[in-house]
Design a protein around this nucleic acid. Structure first.
Lengths: 220, 220
DNA sequence: TGTATCCGATACGCAACTGTATGGGATACA
DNA sequence: TGTATCCCATACAGTTGCGTATCGGATACA
């Protein structure tokens, strides 16, 4: 799947061209799909020739996985940053009825990686994993990272409000994630002009009502 | 997008080779993806050469869309058949608590096109539509068909039980569909051995609890 | 059964991409 | 500043796929 190129000293120069190749690949993969993009196109877009490519990666697949690993980190960092930024969410509220849930969802989804490029890359990765059993574990591992991260936020936020979920929080998280993913895709499919608003609109229409029903007060 | 080949008399022979080409394409697309499959490979798998292909389709894309239209019909028929088969679902039940919901979901999801090949093809279509604004409308139109069809069942079943949804039934349907889609994909990703059981397991873990919360008695 | 039409096989020219081997300019380090 | 090492550009040979044009066998129909 991702046989790394035989160990070579990772000099600064080397690292720089690797980054540039991955940057170029990222854009091209998003707009045309992995299969449709030639190695030559990647190298050229990055300002190199195929010589540079083969000096750094053994195959397009290896580049793809390296790029995905890098990108996952970026997206996870975004999520964590947004979580930290909103860690005090919910304090000061007391009841279930005060409409805070819309706000919570709003914040969570503005925290989620909200960009079309990422959605496309991520969908491509998923499809690839669906076909290639060897790639599936890595994909699932990434998903699990987001899941636990998000789940903790949901539980913590609920707790701040004196609430807890009636069912396994991880299942709730799955619900939220699946809806968010779907909303993101629908936004692109409908060609919405303003990404940020559109996605949240779709999700906000349903999720607050649903989540509200899945919460209950903590009774000590 | 799908410029049909200049009108030719659709003889029986012609129709037969079109079908065979689409059959072959269906298998190949599912296992390798549209981009990875060459026109030559399709023709060969169908028992023809490229001559036959170009005599019937102007491009791989045109074949793909023709095939999708055919396949959508198949899947819709499956759904409708299953609905008809279970049209009396819920009669005889009276209360919300009697655990009938699990059964409803069970039936709905056994009605949904539950095969891996379709999931792969469908995902591919979605990804293609995500990238190509010209293809998006057709994809969305197909989704809408399933949505309204399912929505009607949900509403009707609820009504049979003297219940109705607290929020727009279409939003509930979106919820169910998104979860179902996701469940299907996870099933494949985890490489479950028995498709039918696995999918339902995943969905059944969450949806009944959620749906139960979204229903209320009809008060005349 | 004869004949007109249809359909798909074959042949051809072309373009794009792949992977490797090699050499020269860039870089690091004394 | 000299030199060893590294990294990427270039050249080469080969493969694969594309689209078209043409021809012969199959099919329909009288």
């Amino acid at each position: 799947m991702g046989e790394t190129i035989s160990e070579v000293p990772a000099t600064a120069r080397r690292q720089r061209t690797r980054e540039r190749l991955m940057d170029a690949a990222h854009k091209l993969f998003a707009s045309q799909g992995v299969h449709a993009v030639s190695i030559e196109a990647i190298a050229e877009a990055a300002g190199y020739t195929r010589g540079a490519f083969y000096s750094n990666f053994a195959s397009k697949n290896e580049l793809f996985f390296a790029m995905m690993r890098r990108e996952i980190e970026v997206q996870l960092d975004r999520l964590r940053a947004a979580i930290a930024r909103n860690s005090d969410l919910g304090t000061g509220r007391a009841t279930l009825e005060s409409g805070f849930l819309a706000e919570v969802i709003q914040e969570i989804f503005s925290a989620l990686p909200d960009d079309r490029t990422w959605t496309l890359i991520h969908s491509e990765f998923e499809l690839l994993a669906l076909r290639d059993p060897a790639a599936a574990p890595e994909f699932l591992a990434n998903e699990a990272l987001f899941r636990t991260e998000l789940s903790e936020v949901l539980v913590a936020t609920a707790a701040t409000l004196g609430l807890r979920f009636r069912i396994d929080p991880l299942l709730v998280t799955d619900l939220v994630l699946a809806q968010g993913k779907q909303a993101m895709r629908e936004m692109i499919l409908r060609g919405a002009e303003d990404p940020a608003i559109a996605t949240h609109d779709i999700v906000l229409k349903t999720m607050p009502a649903v989540l509200q029903q899945l919460l209950e007060p903590i009774e000590p």
